[in-house]
Design a protein around this nucleic acid. Structure first.
Length: 554
RNA sequence: UGCCUGAUAGUAUAAGGGUAGUACGACAGAUUUUGGUUCUGUAUGUCUAGGUUCGAAUCCUGGUCGGGCAACCA
């Protein structure tokens, strides 16, 4: 019995529209500008737009808002499509605002003919000055009263390439005194003699966002055009253009964009991180981009689940990145194969275990999944455990290895620490232990109960691997609100590379599509930098660590 | 000084005139051959002042606070 989930405000609008018969079905769109890679904020929008269509039996178009040729590239077009598919969504039509350039031109002509648009020869400085300020009305351009005929000719000449970049624009004739800055004769077209990634050199005038987006929505018969809050003041213009062009009335609805703690989410800033080499690229696993999260090992399921959990509303929000990590862990816990890897080795010699002997112990692949079976892991008299799993002078709640203390080695034997060996400098070199032969997992007749269980790797069977551990990219929770430049807050210790970790042999056959939990150390996946010579793993996310939390208290 | 927009536990998000609920986080405990998982429990909230009403998070009025708006960007 599915619990009835409450509706967000957009779902309410849609249900109302469907119920009233305003629409028979809905059509949404996801409209990225191909000038950067998609990030987790886009994922929220994607899940919303595609999710709505799925829920109400409609469709979603993918439309590239490619009206500014100087920043847009096909590299981004390709990555965007890949990321949406990976997230698990299918769009109806692949469209481009540039597909409509011809029609948009006709729309502009129509507006001119209605006396609602004019060509302005003012410089951008002049236009800005005449625009006024939010508290003071603007003044009208001296070109505002040109005749329809003259405007028609001038606009045609603009299109024909007779003018330099910036020398003329086409403006809507609305109201220079409007309290809404966007209604003060907004620019509709500008001249850019630039190469476009699709229309190439066919055009030298390009429509502005406001004259492309809503019109594209209308051409496609989009019923619900969903965008972020900063477009609210554009809505009167969106509606004005549709009304005066007398075209299909799409409607715009705005929701609050996603902000995440310890993260920047603007494409401009992310591009800066890439260009200035704070990260290795758009897919650096520390980035909040979809491609980076995929590389890091986040699953599409967990990202969708996250987007579902954060909800959709109109108030500004700053979501705890911990919630994203929770979603990732929750999914990974169910699907990850358990493996043992020692990151920071401490040698253990088991003195009462035959030196030449190798014993295979059987370990479950995933206790959360009974069908995942077991694997055989070699055990011998010399093994590595983590340095942190031994304390010469244990603190009170410590129940790992310490002089005279016993712990269980996962799926193998209970061992007892008999002797601590150090070098001349007093540095630990090895721990000598004895094992309890009758304590073997599955056949334990020792009657001994220990509190700690450690992961371990047999030294002579160990496989070497490089591990990359990631921390948050920024040191402050709210980067947007932090003083100074955002780059001042970059965490320069966000990447820790462990060049040699010791892994159980099964990981020699690690696969790119499998997820692993390195026991007690976190979730990992194979990185694309893996080669014949070297295994490279990314730590996707740590395990919850209540022991570390406990220690921080003291 | 204008216009637009929003305000519910630490963070998000419900409740649409009738018991303020859910998730993450925090805290306490149980289980556990991962200090993981799972389970149980606890604490913490309606921006403010009035008004309408038997009854207000919800409706009305005033205030306070936050965000946005002056790119030939989207």
């Amino acid at each position: 019995m599915a619990e009835e989930k409450s509706l967000n405000f957009i779902e309410e609008i849609i249900e109302e529209d469907l119920k009233s018969g305003k629409y028979k079905s809905i059509l949404t769109r996801f409209p990225p500008e191909p000038n950067g890679y998609l990030h987790i904020g886009h994922a929220k929008s994607i899940c919303l737009n595609f999710g709505l269509a799925l829920k109400y039996g409609g469709k979603t178009n993918l439309r590239f808002d490619d009206t500014n040729p100087v920043t847009e590239e096909t590299e981004y077009v390709d990555s965007i499509q890949e990321d949406i598919k990976w997230l698990g969504f299918e769009w109806d039509k692949t469209l481009y605002a540039s597909d409509y350039f011809e029609q948009l031109y006709e729309f502009a002509v129509k507006l001119i003919n209605k006396g609602l648009a004019y060509v302005d020869d003012s410089t951008s400085e002049q236009i800005a000055a005449e625009k006024g300020t939010p508290t003071q009305p603007g003044t009208e351009s001296k070109y505002r009263s040109r005749s329809i005929t003259e405007n028609l000719q001038l606009f045609a000449d603009m299109c024909a390439g007779e003018y330099e970049d910036g020398s003329k624009v086409l403006r809507a004739k609305i109201d220079m005194a409007s309290p809404n800055m966007h209604m003060r004769d907004p620019i509709l077209y500008r001249i850019k003699h630039a190469h476009h990634h699709r229309t190439e050199d066919n055009w030298c005038i390009y429509p502005m966002y406001d004259f492309a987006h809503g019109q594209s929505d209308s051409i496609e018969n989009i019923t619900h055009s969903i965008c972020t809050l900063e477009f609210i003041p554009h809505r009167p213009l969106y509606d004005w253009l549709i009304e005066n062009l007398e075209i299909f009335p799409s409607h715009q609805y705005e929701f609050a964009r996603l902000n995440l703690t310890y993260t920047v989410m603007s494409k401009r800033r992310l591009l800066q991180m890439v260009n200035e080499k704070f990260v290795t690229g758009w897919d650096d696993p520390r980035m909040p981009t979809i491609t980076a999260m995929r590389r890091r090992g986040y699953t599409a399921d967990s990202i969708r689940d996250f987007c579902d959990k954060i909800g959709v509303a109109k108030r500004e929000n700053l979501i705890d990145v911990g919630l994203l990590e929770f979603c990732v862990r929750e999914h990974l816990n169910k699907i990850s194969l358990r493996r043992m890897v020692v990151l920071d080795p401490l040698k253990i010699v088991i003195t009462n275990y035959d030196e030449g002997r190798t014993e295979m112990v059987s370990i479950e692949n995933n206790p959360e999944d009974p069908d995942s079976g077991y694997r055989e892991v070699p055990f011998s008299n010399e093994i590595y455990i983590e340095q942190e799993d031994f304390m010469e002078v244990p603190s009170k709640k410590y129940f790992r290895l310490a002089p005279g203390q016993m712990v269980r080695l996962k799926s193998a034997y209970i061992i007892k620490c008999e002797e601590v060996v150090k070098d001349e400098d007093g540095k630990l070199t090895e721990i000598r232990c004895t094992h309890i032969p009758e304590s073997k997992s599955g056949a334990d007749t020792s009657g001994i109960h220990v509190k700690g269980t450690l992961h371990w790797v047999s030294i002579k069977h160990a496989v070497h691997a490089e591990l990359r551990l990631y921390d948050r990219l920024f040191k402050v929770e709210n980067v947007n609100a932090a003083e100074g430049d955002f780059k001042d807050h970059i965490n320069h210790d966000s990447l820790q590379v462990i060049s040699t970790a010791y892994a159980e042999p099964a990981l020699l056959h690690a696969k790119f599509d499998e997820r692993y939990q390195f026991l007690r150390k976190g979730y990992f996946c194979l990185d694309k930098d893996t080669s014949e010579e070297k295994l490279v793993f990314n730590r996707t996310v740590t395990l919850r660590d209540t022991w570390a939390k406990e220690q921080k208290k003291h």
